[in-house]
Write a protein that binds this DNA or RNA. Structure first.
Lengths: 237, 237
DNA sequence: ATTAAAACCTGATATTTATCAGTGCCATAT
DNA sequence: ATATGGCACTGATAAATATCAGGTTTTAAT
């Protein structure tokens, strides 16, 4: 087991270059680099919990995180999945409310913490950052609106096909003829992404496999027939 | 009929004081005041249409607007309702995509247009504005997440009760013992807010009336028994 | 005032989806 | 090696929801 501290360099961090810190000044990146706190998380650890008060944001370096809401104490809903380069917890940080969701690692991950104080300091010195945050949240808002429309109007099968396509956008890796979705989710978790009981997800997976749309090995789904899947998803965007 | 131009003063505009322009500098407000373009809209007019490119944002002075998405060419989904003081179109403006929804007036309205150029100029001179926009979108994102969770896990009746409570927050006016929801929506529109067929909305309204939860006069719903309604909505926030 | 269109309503039925019960598989801890 | 718990799977049934068909009322236009 490795108990050693991890040293990450924000200047060269690949994830940073696509995220909200992409066009920070050299000095800003240096501040980030010095003040950020990097931690290793095992699978199934919480970064933060619904109801708690935010004191900074989290930046995924490696690994994957799910954001969930536990509605009415019963079924959980996955609000978002975040992979390398993505930022978590900024929404609650700026709306000045407590966390509206719980963040939990889906696999062993390395994640940096950036304090609220530092964020505010960075925004002062580098106003661009704020615009990037607006852009980031705006894009997530767009995704959320699409999901609301899907949940409101589409049947489960279409939503499931759509989910596979979204996973492809975020975690897809082209391999020969097929596209491997590089993320491991239980049937239950997939269900909580599209508002379906896990039993129904199982049935849909069985059906899609039978029809040659997808395959699965080592808990990982691959898309075999993208065109057909897109047809099934009945996309409008 | 009144063809005259409307003169609105941003300095004294009540709506502005709760919105993203709330703590703009005096000079910033003056720029807004001079450059904004004010228009009257009849009921059912479009401000912008899904797929078009944004060139500014819209600020509701009076009246009400619905933001809808027409998924898969069939059923429409209401993404959001906006009343006086609320801003529309900023999401697409900043994510630099085309409009993902259509904005249409629900009643005769007066709405100001603010060009993208001016917004960017204001952000330059008054960086606070950007933070307010972040806060604004963050709050909307929170609402969107709640809706996703509701649609995913709650039955129609709960979602309908929840919708009435949200309408109360946005448009409720206390009158004696009851709370009047100052907005006129068709059964169809209410259905497209909660992902339900209009027939089912009709049945729910009938049921709620019978149970003394709500009343209706002149197409306007009033909440008679708030506590009972909150119980039915099974809120988690 | 008359007509047309839109919205509202109701019951019956079909479809979708959830729930329940039971089984087997597989990883992992003892 | 074997128990154990979690996950995957399957079929049957129940419940929720959509759709359809037929009305009535309301609203708006001529």
């Amino acid at each position: 087991m490795n108990h050693g501290k991890i040293q990450l360099n924000c200047h060269t961090c690949e994830g940073r270059k696509n995220g909200i810190f992409c066009d920070l000044s050299h000095q800003g990146i240096e501040n980030l680099n010095v003040e950020k706190i990097t931690n290793k998380y095992k699978k199934d650890q919480n970064l933060f919990v619904e109801g708690n008060s935010p004191f900074g944001l989290y930046c995924v370096h490696s690994g994957k995180v799910k954001l969930t809401k536990t509605n009415s104490a019963v079924r959980e809903t996955i609000i978002r999945l975040a992979g390398p380069g993505e930022v978590l917890g900024h929404r609650s940080l700026f709306s000045e409310t407590s966390y509206s969701a719980t963040a939990k690692t889906l696999e062993d991950s390395v994640i940096c913490f950036v304090s609220k104080t530092l964020i505010m300091k960075l925004i002062q010195s580098d106003p661009h950052l704020c615009c990037n945050i607006v852009r980031n949240i705006s894009e997530q808002m767009g995704a959320a609106e699409n999901r609301i429309a899907s949940l409101s109007t589409k049947p489960q099968k279409e939503r499931f096909a759509e989910m596979l396509l979204l996973l492809k956008e975020a975690f897809g890796e082209k391999q020969d003829q097929e596209i491997k979705l590089n993320i491991k989710l239980t049937r239950e978790e997939m269900g909580s992404m599209i508002g379906a009981a896990s039993e129904n997800v199982i049935r849909l997976i069985t059906e899609f496999k039978k029809n040659g749309l997808i395959a699965e090995s080592d808990k990982t789904i691959s898309i075999l027939n993208l065109a057909k899947l897109e047809g099934l998803a009945n996309l409008s965007y």
